[in-house]
């Protein structure tokens, strides 16, 4: 579904991705872990074309991301941003239905509104928040609205950037469950970036750890605890001592 080969990206002298190879199978949930500043978000943005890689190839559904119709390419994706990235100037339902109200396959306002309400219900929100503005919602509610927006057009691929950052443990658990349920019922391919290990265990079929600009370890979630990789062990067990240098 998504095949990344020898991906490189540097910002000036700061090499962020230094030959990333990764394969994400169709209808599977891949979670990318790694320390802060290791290039997880850059990798995700390279796939979406928000950042141009220096070299390497990214193939999505058999098509090189550098070629083809950009709009059709992006139509395959839904994305939940770390901070929600909801549009302040639009009410909640228009945020959720944004994609449905634009482009070639645009729906009528009434139809888009109905779908938005249905998606809000799917993420556990009541229809009475539809007319509110994002600033009137709590952080957890904003995350759910972001999730509803990500799935509104029923994309084949969904990206989750730090889905539980800034949430309390209970709300994190709720969001993790929602992500897992939605990915399974939609049959979507999911890629999640996180350093929350409870998210990793709740969401992942497969895990990839990025360190020093390359994929340090990748494999199924079941093998993560017995990987024998010292970098992965240090990270998942949150140890200060180990091969990964901790800046104090």
């Amino acid at each position: 579904m998504i095949k990344i080969t020898d991906l490189h990206k540097a910002f000036g002298s700061n090499v962020v991705l230094n030959g990333v190879d990764l394969h994400i199978k169709k209808a599977s949930s891949m979670v990318i872990i790694g320390g802060s500043g290791t290039g997880k978000s850059v990798l995700l943005k390279c796939i979406l074309g928000l950042i141009a890689p220096d070299s390497g190839t990214i193939i999505v559904n058999g098509v090189d991301t550098k070629s083809g119709d950009r709009e059709a390419f992006l139509d395959q994706f839904g994305m939940l941003f770390q901070g929600g990235a909801l549009f302040d100037s639009l009410p909640v339902w228009q945020n959720v239905a944004f994609r449905l109200l634009q482009g070639k396959h645009r729906l009528s306002k009434a139809d888009a509104h109905d779908i938005a309400i249905e998606k809000l219900r799917r993420v556990g929100l009541k229809s009475n928040i539809a007319e509110l503005f994002p600033a009137e919602l709590s952080g957890g509610m904003q995350k759910r609205v972001g999730l509803a927006r990500a799935i509104a057009a029923e994309p084949q691929i969904i990206f989750f950037d730090e889905p539980t950052t800034g949430l309390d443990p209970i709300m994190s658990g709720v969001i993790n469950e929602l992500v897992r349920e939605i990915v399974e019922e939609m049959g979507a391919t999911a890629m999640t970036i996180t350093h929350d290990m409870s998210s990793v265990r709740a969401i992942a079929d497969n895990v990839a750890m990025i360190h020093n600009g390359v994929v340090q370890w990748t494999g199924p979630i079941g093998k993560m605890d017995d990987s024998g990789d010292p970098y992965l062990d240090q990270f998942i067990n949150a140890r200060a001592e180990g091969p990964i240098e901790a800046v104090r």
């Binding site: 943005k45 979406l48 709009e71 992006l74 139509d75 994305m79 549009f87 302040d88 634009q102 927006r149």
Partner: peptide, 17 residues
């Protein structure tokens, strides 16, 4: 600028806009 900082501009792109 606020839209850029809060990733709303990136969100527009991912929503095919």
């Amino acid at each position: 600028g606020t839209m850029r900082v809060t990733e709303q501009i990136d969100a527009l792109t991912t929503l095919s806009t």
